[in-house]
Nucleic acid binder design. Structure first.
Length: 486
RNA sequence: CGCGGGGUGGAGAAGUAGUAUCUCGUCGGGCUCAUAACCCGGAGACAUCGGUGCAAUUCCGAUCCCCGCAACCA
């Protein structure tokens, strides 16, 4: 029997800054689902990559005085480095500057055009002479540039292509109606529903090439390039070989998309309308995560000046290791809500859950097992992922289905707590002197449960899961898994 | 009256019309298999003010405060 296909993708981070912890959250969430589905014998395709077009990148490269292509190459590498640091299992790392992606955007554009959804219109740009920059309404204070409040804004008109978003209002509402799980969590789904209900405005999907050459070419118009939105969203299908590779595309699309709350509109409304326009199936499901904020609840951003080491996933990787970062992101960062974060909180969570919790439990159980030479029977657990009878596993998986990562891990950590308590209550280390048989029985049960924990942790902390299994199979006292940090 | 989300012990999360739960931290005790780890126990909370109810943290209203979004910030 052919394996059932399963496709999932993250958003593509924009390469105008180094990778930060917020994207690490998204990609780790997706990675855990990808690994889980592989264990469940799905044929998984997991996509991530980088978004490399647009004015910001163009300007940034100019500022640094380097060729734009070299600039994006450098950043793409930085993001791809997360693969090792976070032990990511993605199958594709797409870059929106890839040849194939560019040809896919062309086909996509043409389909929307054919369908009558792309038209030319005058676009009024508010331009601040002080900044020498175009300004959007949300950047303005009292209709003035906040950095140059004494200057009037100039209105510049240029001709751009627009996408007939407004046409898709009812189709989108129907889509939401027919797919009650379309967006997780519910409150985000409600947000987008009411946004669409309130009416949609067509949006601009191109820019004048002479002002901003760094974009995907618009087919049939030398003077325009695609606005980065339009081009970037198409990656979710171009990565599957669309439009040429029909077989692969039809096998995997539609899939599940992970995105941050700032992307709700783009992913669950704009992109869906684009797909409808191009005559393609809409996304299956969208998971919207919250933001990681600073300890005092501020947004992490360059302009706020609070990026740097504390938001750098590589810093935590170097200090604590891959699985510790995965653990913290998944257990202590809320899957849907914003969460305050700091290096101190990370350390606390690490010490409590990994050093004192899991790591210490492994040491105490294995020590008894080795010292008293207890026989180990764990064979029945080896194929646990292929069975469907284990109620604990079922519950665990059901949390992941709902993207409630934190609750899934709470389940495991409750089990760890119960095992610690069982050791204290039954005292096998004492019992061994008076009733060896009974003591060994208890220890054998503990080893069994520990091995089960290791199996359950496979999608979440793959390295640690393997290590624990090997320790038990080899019956050798290990080095501590997670040393306590002071 | 632009739309929406929310305020639960020091921190983070659950939850319900009827003893308010869990995790971390903290304090006291215990244990020694273990990474000063682990176990037990204590202290500590439902933003404010009204209303309905036998009973409100939960339902309703008002107030205060936080936070998103407000259209092309990728």
């Amino acid at each position: 029997m052919d394996k059932r296909p399963f496709y999932l993708t993250t958003t593509l981070p924009y390469v105008n800054a180094d990778p930060h912890i917020g994207f690490a959250l998204e990609v780790v969430q997706a990675d855990i689902i990808a690994r889980l589905k592989r264990l469940e014998e799905f044929d998984v395709f997991f996509n991530t990559g980088t978004d490399e077009h647009g004015l910001k990148i163009y300007k940034k490269a100019q500022e640094e005085g380097i060729d734009v292509q070299k600039y994006v190459d450098k950043y793409a590498k930085k993001f791809d480095n997360l693969k090792k640091a976070l032990n990511l299992s993605y199958d594709a790392f797409i870059r929106t500057t890839d040849e194939h992606h560019l040809s896919a955007t062309k086909e996509f554009w043409n389909r929307c055009l054919k369908n009558g959804d792309i038209y030319k219109k005058n676009y009024k740009v508010k331009y601040c002479v002080g900044c020498e920059l175009e300004k959007t309404d949300s950047e303005l204070v009292n209709n003035k540039c906040h950095e140059h409040p004494n200057r009037e804004l100039e209105i510049i008109e240029e001709e751009n292509y627009f996408f007939r978003f407004s046409k898709y209002q009812n189709a989108l509402l129907d889509l939401y109606e027919e797919n009650p799980d379309f967006v997780t969590p519910d409150f985000r789904f409600n947000e987008i529903k009411s946004f669409v209900k309130n009416g949609l405005m067509d949006f601009s999907i191109s820019r004048l090439k002479k002002k901003m050459p760094w974009g995907a070419p618009v087919p049939g118009d030398e003077n325009q390039v695609m606005f980065v939105w339009f081009d970037a969203l198409i990656n979710y299908i171009s990565t599957l070989g669309w439009p040429e590779d029909k077989e692969k595309f039809e096998k995997f699309w539609p899939g599940i998309q992970f995105a941050g709350k700032d992307n709700l509109r783009q992913q669950s409304a704009m992109w869906q309308a684009m797909l409808l326009s191009a005559g393609l199936p809409t996304t299956k499901r969208i998971m919207i995560h919250g933001f990681i904020l600073t300890e005092s609840g501020e947004k992490i951003s360059k302009s706020a000046g609070n990026t740097g080491r504390i938001t750098d996933p590589f810093y935590y990787f170097n200090e604590y290791g891959t699985d510790a970062v995965r653990y913290y992101l998944i257990r202590h960062i809320h899957p849907f809500e914003d969460t305050n974060f700091s290096p101190e909180k990370f350390k606390e969570g690490y010490n409590a859950g990994l050093a004192n919790g899991l790591g210490n439990l492994v040491s105490r159980v294995v020590k008894m097992c080795v010292n008293y030479d207890v026989s180990v029977k764990v064979d029945e657990l080896k194929n646990i992922w292929e069975t469907n009878s284990d109620s604990e596993l079922k519950k665990y998986k059901s949390y992941f289905e709902k993207f409630e990562f934190n609750k899934a891990l709470d389940l495991i950590w409750n089990k760890i707590g119960e095992m610690d308590k069982k050791i204290t209550d039954t005292q096998p280390f004492k019992l061994i002197k008076t009733d060896e048989k009974k003591a060994k029985e208890i220890i054998s049960e503990l080893v069994f449960d520990l091995y089960k924990i290791a199996k359950l942790l496979e999608p979440v902390m793959p390295e640690t899961a393997q290590k624990i299994q090997k320790i038990i199979e080899d019956k050798k006292m290990p080095e501590p898994l997670f040393l306590r940090k002071e």
